[in-house]
Design a protein around this nucleic acid. Structure first.
Lengths: 230, 230
DNA sequence: CTAGTTGACGAACGACGTTCGTCGCGTACG
DNA sequence: CGTACGCGACGAACGTCGTTCGTCAACTAG
C-alpha cells in the first residue's frame, strides 16, 4: 500500500539549546520529578530517543536546565560588598525558585555549569573583598551553595502550596503552613514543651523574610568565624 | 497433578517495623534512589504489594526509615549549651550519613517523625538556653535542619566516593575531589581568577572538618543576629 | 551522481510505583 | 464444633519510566 511518500517530516532543527530550554519549560509545568525524557520529547514533538543525541542522560539534561535558569542573574554593582553578596545570593535563589523545584538538580549532582561557576566566582570575589580569609572563603562557598539549593526548594514548595491553596481551597486550614502547624498542635506539650511554646513562631513569617534572615545569619557567622581562625 | 498441599508458606509475621528496618538495610546497600519497593520486598522474601499494608507509599516508607535512623542518637549532657548543641547536630548528621544517602528523604519531604522531632525539641531547648530570641530560635531550627540534610548528603557522597576509590582505583586522580579539582583546573584563569586563585583551598580538608566549621559559622551567626534583632 | 556520515526516531527491554482481586488463614461468634 | 467473617499476603497487571539498538532519511564531500 502506498503510504504517503511525504512522510518526511521536514523536522525542525533540534539542538542542545532547544532541548534544554524545553526541559526547563516542562519542569516549570509539571515539576522536576515528573519532567521525564518522554515529556520533554513530547514538548519538542519527537520521541525520547532523539534527546540522547544532545544529552548523555537525564541528569545531564537537568543539570543543564539548572544552569540555564541562572543565565540571566545579574551581578549587583551598587552597595558595599555585603549588600552585593546578599543581593546576588538572593537573586540566584529567586531565579531557581522561579522554575518550580528545579533546584532538586543541585542536590542530585554538584552544580558545575558555566553560569553557576560565574556566580560562584563573583561570590568568592565579594567574600575576599569583605576581608574573609582565603581558607574561610573556600569553605564558605560550600555553605552558600548549600543555602541556595535549600532556600530555592523551600521557596518553591511555598510558591506551589500557595498556588494550590488559592486554586482549590478557600483559605482552608489544610494549606502548607497549616498542615505543619497542625502537626505541632497535635504534639504532647509535656514531651515537646519547647516546640509547643514556640509553635506560633515556628510557622511565622513569609518565605522571603525567613530566607533573608537566614542569609544574614550565615554572613554574620562568616565574619565572626573568619576573625577567629582555627 | 498434586501440587504440594503444603504450599502454605508459614509466612513470617510481617510488620511495619520489619518493613521499615528492611528499607533501611536496602538503602545502606544500594542507596536511596535504587531502594525500590521491589527490592525491599525481596529482602523480606515477599512481593511489593505486601508492603502497602503497612505503608501508604514509597515516600512514607523512606520518611519512616529516615526517622528510624535517628532513633539511637543520644542527647549530650556534658558541656555548655553551645558544645551540646554542636555535638547533637554532629551526631544527627553522622547517624544519617551512616545510612548512605538516606538524607535525600529529608529533602523530598519535611521530616516530621517522632525521633526527628525529639531532636528538634532538644535543639530548640539548647538555643533558648543560650539566650537566643524566641523568634530567632524558631527560624534557626530551619537553618539547622537544612544544614543537617545537606551535611549528611555531602558526607555520604564523600564516604561513597572513598569506598569506590579504595575498591577500584589505586589512588588515581579520578576520585571525587579529584574530579572536582579537575574542573577547576580546566577553567580559564582570566574568566575565573578567584576560583583559580583559591583552587587548592576549595577542595582542601576532610568532610568532618569542613562540616564542623560550617556548623560553628551558623551558630556564630545565630548569636550575632540574635543580639541585633530586626 | 555516488559514498559516507549524521541525526531522527520506532520499537523494545527491564525496572519502577501502585492497584486490584483473590485466596488462605485465624478468630469470634452462633 | 461449625461457620462466617475479616484481614493480611501476594500474583498479576497497568501505565510510566530511562535508556539502547537498529534503521532509515537527508545532507555533505568527492
Amino acid at each position: 500500500m502506498p503510504v504517503s511518500p511525504r512522510t518526511r517530516p521536514a523536522k525542525a532543527a533540534l539542538s542542545r539549546e532547544a532541548v534544554v530550554a524545553a526541559a526547563l519549560d516542562v519542569v516549570d509545568e509539571v515539576g522536576f520529578e515528573a519532567a521525564s525524557m518522554r515529556r520533554v520529547a513530547t514538548a519538542l514533538e519527537t520521541g525520547p530517543a532523539s534527546l540522547y543525541v544532545y544529552v548523555a542522560d537525564r541528569r545531564e539534561l537537568m543539570a543543564a536546565a539548572h544552569d540555564l535558569a541562572l543565565a540571566d542573574v545579574e551581578v549587583p554593582t551598587a552597595g558595599d560588598w555585603r549588600a552585593r553578596l546578599e543581593l546576588l545570593v538572593t537573586r540566584t535563589v529567586a531565579a531557581l525558585a522561579a522554575h518550580n523545584d528545579l533546584a532538586t538538580a543541585a542536590i542530585a549532582a554538584v552544580p558545575l555549569g558555566p553560569h553557576f561557576l560565574r556566580l560562584n566566582e563573583e561570590m568568592l570575589r565579594l567574600l575576599r573583598e569583605g576581608g574573609v580569609d582565603d581558607a574561610a572563603c573556600a569553605w564558605a562557598i560550600d555553605l552558600l551553595v548549600q543555602y541556595i539549593a535549600s532556600a530555592a526548594l523551600e521557596q518553591a514548595a511555598w510558591n506551589r502550596a500557595q498556588r494550590e491553596t488559592r486554586a482549590t481551597e478557600e483559605a482552608m486550614g489544610a494549606d502548607f503552613v497549616g498542615r505543619l502547624d497542625a502537626v505541632y498542635a497535635g504534639l504532647d506539650p509535656a514531651a515537646f514543651p519547647t516546640i509547643t511554646a514556640l509553635r506560633g513562631l515556628l510557622t511565622a513569617g513569609g518565605g522571603d523574610e525567613r530566607d533573608a534572615w537566614k542569609l544574614r545569619v550565615i554572613v554574620d557567622g562568616l565574619l565572626a568565624q573568619s576573625r577567629t581562625p582555627g
